[in-house]
Design a protein around this nucleic acid. Structure first.
Lengths: 227, 227
DNA sequence: GCCCGCCTATTTGTCGACAATTTTGCCAGA
DNA sequence: TCTGGCAAAATTGTCGACAAATAGGCGGGC
């Protein structure tokens, strides 16, 4: 089903993905200290593979490490979110522009088909599915469609995990879903028309809206906690 | 002197930097297979720290690894250069815009002072210095001035090494130097005026020119080799 | 002569133990 | 009681050895 075929061949790969998911989905809380021995017992692997996993997590900014001290899961903050979405807007805008230029016709058709599927599910199940996986899938395809290796790498195995972490931990479920679907539709249309400039503009807008949406959630969140 | 204070505390840090420099500056040729045992004897450290170094190099796209097979230094190609400069243009353009917004007045003054220094050296020594370190320094400061942690990380300990690799290995010395200085001057002026939009535009242009310059060199290079 | 499968050799992946550094807790002195 | 420093405990950094997987060469079969 999922578009992201991230095949774990080695043991370190699996551990990395497990730990990454556990962090993104909050089973390992933000700000937690990551003890190597503790993790190695929990995940039933040696410290070496834990260290490799942590190193990779550092590369995608999910953990921070100080030499001879240890690694901590990053903490989420409004500033961090702002900065994250700043670069996301820039990079994904560019991805959309490149996708309008470089995607093959069949890839575009598949993308349109994907949106149709989402629409059907949205009608049937009351738009619960679209939420996570659908949105993720859509953005992944655009990024892949850019055919730019650096872009793909930075976004897909870099920033996106952090984006997901923000979304998951703030409990994403809201009125944004339906409007996001329309935005996706327009973006695909621009790409199908090979209108690079419009594709970029729409994508940047789309992400800007998304940021505003999640930002208000973050404020509510901290307000609730503050009380 | 150098602005980039990258302090190596642990042994793996040092090895990573050494190996990285050796790759960037061509002492380890592009496309070379990186044997872990060989490297561990060469650099007088255990395989564990070599593996960590290789992992970090993977994160900044200087080497590629296949599981159970090994790691190779990336190969330079016109497509790779194109893709690299595409994202560089986008990200550094954004960095310039953010720098115009977020740099402190004293930081801007320091930047202007830096350019003056470069100008003097250019006059005295016949612009040989400006070449490498000066340009690097300039761009580093702008990026840092953006105050965006993700941007800083992706560029400075990600793409820049690859950029340097392209430049070094194609033997950068050319007529571009002086015009680049003028471009830098205008960018700083825009930043000093807090003109975000102009700063971004000028920076994007600057990088575009730089790409064209290096691209013709790459063509000459491969032509020479082809004959 | 060519192709397929096996076997060996080399290389990578993983592990547990040791060394170095940091943190924590305790004690002495003011 | 508070502060400074020393010592012990815990944690990270580094290492060498073993396990697993791949690549290359050899021989047998067609």
């Amino acid at each position: 089903m999922s578009f992201t075929t991230e095949t774990a061949v080695t043991n370190a790969d699996k551990t990395y993905m497990q730990l990454r998911n556990d962090i993104v989905e909050g089973r390992v809380a933000a700000g937690t200290k990551l003890s190597e021995v503790e993790l190695s017992t929990n995940y039933c692997v040696s410290r070496a593979v834990i260290r490799e996993a942590i190193n990779r997590l550092m590369a995608c900014h999910l953990v921070e490490r100080k030499a001879n001290v240890g690694a901590r899961v990053v903490t989420l903050s409004p500033e961090g979110l702002e900065q994250l979405y700043q670069v996301r807007e820039s990079l994904e805008g560019m991805a959309a522009r490149l996708a309008a230029k470089n995607m093959t016709d069949t890839e575009i058709e598949n993308l349109q088909h994907l949106l149709n599927t989402h629409f059907d599910q949205q009608v049937q199940t009351g738009e619960s599915y679209y939420q996570e996986a659908g949105d993720v899938d859509f953005h992944y395809r655009i990024v892949q469609g850019s055919k730019n290796q650096h872009l793909i790498s930075v976004l897909i195995n870099g920033l996106y995990h952090l984006v997901r972490m923000y979304r998951v931990q703030l409990g994403m479920a809201g009125p944004r879903v339906t409007t996001a679907f329309d935005e996706h539709l327009h973006i695909v249309k621009a790409i199908a028309n090979r209108d690079e400039e419009l594709a970029e503009i729409l994508m940047r807008r789309h992400i800007l809206y998304s940021k505003n949406n999640i930002q208000t959630k973050l404020l509510n969140h901290s307000n609730l906690k503050g009380q």
